[in-house]
Design a protein around this nucleic acid. Structure first.
Lengths: 234, 234
DNA sequence: CCTGGCTCTCAGGAAACGTTCAGCCGATGC
DNA sequence: GCATCGGCTGAACGTTTCCTGAGAGCCAGG
């Protein structure tokens, strides 16, 4: 739901679990990407050959061949095609092996924010896309994605990982109302079973750290959600 | 409510409850869409293959296969076919969590306004239809759907969710007379049992917030309904 | 083993919201 | 001019929604 006037890039999502595939492809499309999906390695290689995606999101565990093999084939095809791996959390040192072939990886269960951030980072690196800013700014709030750091009025603020992801999501969507469900779906892992109460708690934490003074940035819209609004548009 | 010289898009509505199916298809047709309906997943896939709708409105709970499965089949057919899901409110549904992410879902019981807004939003995103504006404007009244915000003469106005939906309905139908029954049907959830008195109350609230000064925008037509009319065309 | 930070749950209280209702007012029709 | 009807609006109610403090469970580091 972000940038919309143009296609940011063409992606190929490869995963054998249909719901993960759907989850990813649907929300990547919403974020402005053109997305194709494949369910196994053979299909992946086939599609990649045909459509030449700008990036491949690739599950490590596939029914026919494993992710590394697929990545190898992709590499052989030439025309650099960066790969973002999806790995299970427990797999202890899949990661190490994988990272040599992959440009980055995300562990399952992931949150959409994580995946999106990684995809953007990889694209930025590989095509030197600098129109996707690393530094977000709203009012006197500043957030550096790469440094994972936040400033309020020039002063650095310490945020926990979740607080950071939440604020990041808010800042990417400045001016747009975000429902609690939406926030939950983007910031929390997809397998999170709890209810939207957490979101309230974390909004509360965030406010305490970065939004105590007037003019307020994070606004509650009862029965609808929250918005991060730059000042003066009040 | 209708824009009507042309068909906005071709839709496929899939729900096993006949009354919901009828409710939706009738009012979507009135809004200028071309609508086909299916009662279960099998039928849905069949029809979708044949008529290639621009968007599918899909109930998650179907007698034969669930929404995920259907969506998967649709996706496999190629030619991106966005899906708007209908889900029960109860929330703690595992299946649903995945769908929600897509962000294009509406919970039952819904109001027609909600469904229409979502459909338009999805179509806008997927086909880059920017002729359906996000920002509505009538006189010195301005409404931003995404930001869920309203301005009167440049000044921001706080509206409750229902007030907002009502005003939105008025603005989409500028210049058209809306009966109280019609308003009730579109703005309130379809299972609302109360009488049209609420509408009067809310029109009153709205007027107090955005229509206190001359020239008046919201006019009462005794025994008929209300109209939102731009100034000077009086 | 203890400590501290982080995440999540829960519950109390406060405010906003939706709905109903009754009394009033203006318009309409006789 | 009068009676009637429909619409307006303030007050009141129960309900929902949100905020926040307190605390339990968990993990990592010391």
């Amino acid at each position: 739901m972000d940038v919309l006037d143009r296609v940011e890039a063409r992606l190929l999502v490869v995963d054998d679990e249909p719901n993960i595939r759907e989850l990813l492809s649907a929300s990547l499309r919403l974020s402005g990407f053109e997305v194709m999906t494949a369910a196994d390695g053979r299909e992946a290689v086939q599609f990649a050959e045909r459509i030449r995606p700008d990036l491949v999101v690739l599950d490590v565990m596939l029914p026919d061949m494993d992710g590394f093999a697929v990545a190898g084939r992709l590499r052989e095809m030439g025309g650099q095609m960066p790969v973002l791996f999806l790995t299970a959390r427990d797999g202890t040192d899949d990661k190490v092996t994988g990272l040599k072939v992959a440009d980055d990886y995300v562990t399952k269960p992931f949150s959409l924010e994580e995946v999106l951030a990684r995809i953007r980072a990889v694209l930025r690196r590989t095509r030197g896309d600098l129109d996707l800013p690393v530094r977000l700014r709203v009012g006197d709030l500043e957030l550096d994605e790469e440094a994972h750091q936040v400033w309020k009025g020039g002063a650095m603020v310490r945020l926990s990982p979740t607080e950071f992801k939440l604020l990041h999501y808010f800042m990417i969507n400045t001016g747009r109302v975000l429902s609690k469900a939406q926030i939950l779906d983007h910031v929390w892992n997809y397998d999170f079973g709890g209810d939207a109460g957490v979101v309230e708690s974390y909004v509360s934490y965030l406010r305490r750290k970065i939004d105590t003074a007037e003019p307020r940035l994070i606004h509650t819209l009862r029965g609808v959600g929250y918005v991060l609004r730059p000042p003066q548009s009040d």
